[in-house]
Write a protein that binds this DNA or RNA. Structure first.
Length: 419
DNA sequence: TCTGGGGTCCTAGGACCC
DNA sequence: TCTGGGGTCCTAGGACCC
C-alpha cells in the first residue's frame, strides 16, 4: 500500500503556527511580487478566492472580509517542510518527498486492520511536533492514494483527514466521484480531449482501451490508467539531484535599459551558481531569457531566449555571470519594456567529474574563492558579498508588503514569549 | 498600475553513424 | 517492379506537476 501525506493549505498553515490567532480566519499567501494567491485557508476558499487569484483584482474582497494577507516567505516554508519530512522519514521505511508539502510513503508489514490507527498516530505526532495539520490518503497505488487523499481533505468531519481505499467497492466509488480533470496527471489539454469522448470521471477513463489511451496520451497516460485500475505501475522514486536549476523573476516595474537588465541577469546567474554549488554540480549549458509583459496589449511585445554552450563546466558565480551577460547582450533589443527575465542552467554534472580541456579551462582559483563567498554569505546574510556587475547600490527587492518574520531561520526574528 | 516561480518526462523528427 | 536495415544522439515543443 501507498500513503500520500499532504499538508493542509501548507503555506497558510506555516503562517498559522506562529500566529495561532489566525486559526479559523480567512488567510491567503501571495506569490513573489505579491502577484497572485498561491495558498488559501479553507475560510478564504469559501469566500470564493480561487487559486492564482490576482491580488489587485481581489483587493477589495480581501478588505471587505478582513482576509489576512501574507507575502510568500519561502525561507519559513522550506524550513517547516524539512521538519515535517524529517518526522515522516523517521516514522516510515520508504519515503518519496514529492513536493514541498507532499510525500508518498510505502507501507509494508502492517496488517490492514492497523492502518487507520497507525496513520492516525502519525498525523497526531506531526501536528504535535510541527503544528502542521496533514491529510493522508492510503491505497494500493500512488494514483489511487492521490485520490484517497483528496477524499480525506474534502470530508474532514467524516474522515478526520484520513481515508483508505482498500477494496473494489471503495475504489470504484472513489473513481466515479473524481472528475477527470481532477485526476493526477490529467491536465487541461487531456481533460478537454477526454471530455469530447464522453469521459467524465476517473472511472470512465479506466474503461478505455489500452491502445487508445497509449495513442492519445502516450505511455504516461497508460501508466496512469493502470495505476488507477489498482495495478501498481508508478513506483516510489528516489530524490535525485536536480537536472535543471532556474532563477527567474518578474519585475515590479518595467525595464528598458540594458544596464538595468544586466544587473538582474547577473544576479540570477550568481543565484544559479550558488544553487549549483549547493548540490555539488557544475553546468555546461545556460539559457538566458527576457520577456516583455504579455498582459499589455498596448505595448509592442518581444520575447527571446538564448542557449549558451559553455567552453568548460562551471559553477563559479564569476564565470556564469560573464556568460549570462554575453548571452543577454546578444538577445537584448532597445525600445521594449521588459517585465520578466531569467537564467536557467542545464546539463548539470557532478563537480568532481568535470573534464579538463586542452586549452580553455575554468580558473582553478575560483573554487576556493566561491567557498569563501558561500561561507561569508552564510554567516552574514544572503548577497552580503556580491559581484560588482550585480549593482553596487541597493539590493533589488521584489514587492513583499506582507512578509512574516523568519521565525525559524533567523535569530533576530525568533518568536518572543511573555515579553 | 498590478496578473509567480519553480520543476519533470515524453515524443517526433532530423542528423548522423556503420 | 525494384531502390537495406539497423542504430544513436540531439532538440524543440508539449504536457504535466506543485
Amino acid at each position: 500500500m501507498y500513503a500520500l501525506v499532504d499538508c493542509n493549505n501548507f503555506y497558510v498553515s506555516c503562517e498559522r503556527v506562529f500566529r495561532p490567532d489566525l486559526n479559523g480566519k480567512a488567510v491567503v499567501v501571495l506569490s513573489n511580487n505579491d502577484g497572485c494567491a498561491i495558498a488559501r485557508s479553507n475560510e478564504a476558499k469559501k469566500l470564493g478566492i480561487p487559486m492564482g487569484a490576482n491580488a489587485f483584482e481581489y483587493e477589495a474582497l480581501f478588505k471587505k472580509h478582513h482576509v489576512h494577507v501574507f507575502s510568500a516567505n519561502f525561507a519559513l516554508y522550506g524550513d517547516m517542510s524539512q521538519r515535517v519530512m524529517t518526522l515522516l522519514s523517521e516514522l516510515s521505511q520508504e519515503i518519496e518527498v514529492y513536493s514541498i508539502d507532499e510525500a508518498f510513503l510505502k507501507i509494508s508489514g502492517l496488517p490492514p486492520s492497523n492502518l487507520a490507527k497507525h496513520f492516525s498516530e502519525l498525523q497526531k505526532r506531526v501536528y504535535k511536533c510541527t503544528g502542521i495539520p496533514i491529510s493522508i490518503g492510503i491505497a494500493p497505488t500512488k494514483a489511487l492514494a492521490k485520490i484517497s487523499n483528496k477524499i480525506a481533505k474534502k470530508f474532514p468531519k467524516e474522515t478526520n483527514n484520513i481515508y483508505i481505499i482498500d477494496d473494489e467497492i471503495k475504489r470504484v466509488k472513489a473513481l466515479k466521484w473524481t472528475k477527470i480533470g481532477d485526476v493526477w496527471g490529467i491536465g487541461n489539454a487531456n481533460e478537454r480531449l477526454l471530455q469530447t469522448l464522453g469521459v467524465k470521471n476517473a472511472f470512465d477513463f479506466t474503461q478505455l482501451n489500452d491502445q487508445f489511451v497509449k495513442n492519445h496520451l502516450t505511455i504516461v497516460g497508460l501508466r496512469l490508467k493502470q495505476d488507477l485500475q489498482g495495478i501498481p505501475t508508478l513506483k516510489l522514486e528516489d530524490v535525485k539531484d536536480k537536472k535543471n536549476i532556474a532563477t527567474t523573476r518578474s519585475f515590479e516595474g518595467n525595464i528598458t535599459e540594458l544596464s538595468a537588465l544586466e544587473e538582474r541577469i547577473s544576479t540570477f546567474a550568481v543565484s544559479c551558481a550558488e544553487k549549483l554549488r549547493k548540490q555539488n554540480n557544475c553546468c555546461t549549458t545556460m539559457m538566458v531569457f527576457i520577456h516583455t509583459n504579455g498582459f499589455r496589449n498596448d505595448l509592442p511585445q518581444y520575447s527571446k531566449n538564448i542557449l549558451i554552450k559553455l567552453p568548460f563546466a562551471s559553477n563559479s558565480a564569476i564565470e556564469l555571470s560573464r556568460f549570462a551577460l554575453e548571452g543577454l547582450r546578444k538577445i537584448f533589443k532597445t525600445g521594449f519594456h521588459y517585465k520578466k527575465a531569467g537564467v536557467i542552467v542545464l546539463d548539470l554534472i557532478p563537480s568532481e567529474q568535470v573534464q579538463f580541456k586542452f586549452f580553455d579551462n575554468a580558473n582553478p582559483r575560483h573554487i576556493p574563492l566561491m567557498k569563501a563567498l558561500d561561507k561569508i554569505n552564510a554567516n552574514f546574510g544572503q548577497q552580503k558579498l556580491r559581484l560588482a556587475s550585480q549593482s553596487t547600490g541597493k539590493i533589488w527587492r521584489m514587492k513583499q508588503e506582507h512578509l512574516s518574520p523568519n521565525y525559524t531561520t533567523k535569530l533576530s526574528d525568533i518568536i518572543l514569549i511573555n515579553v
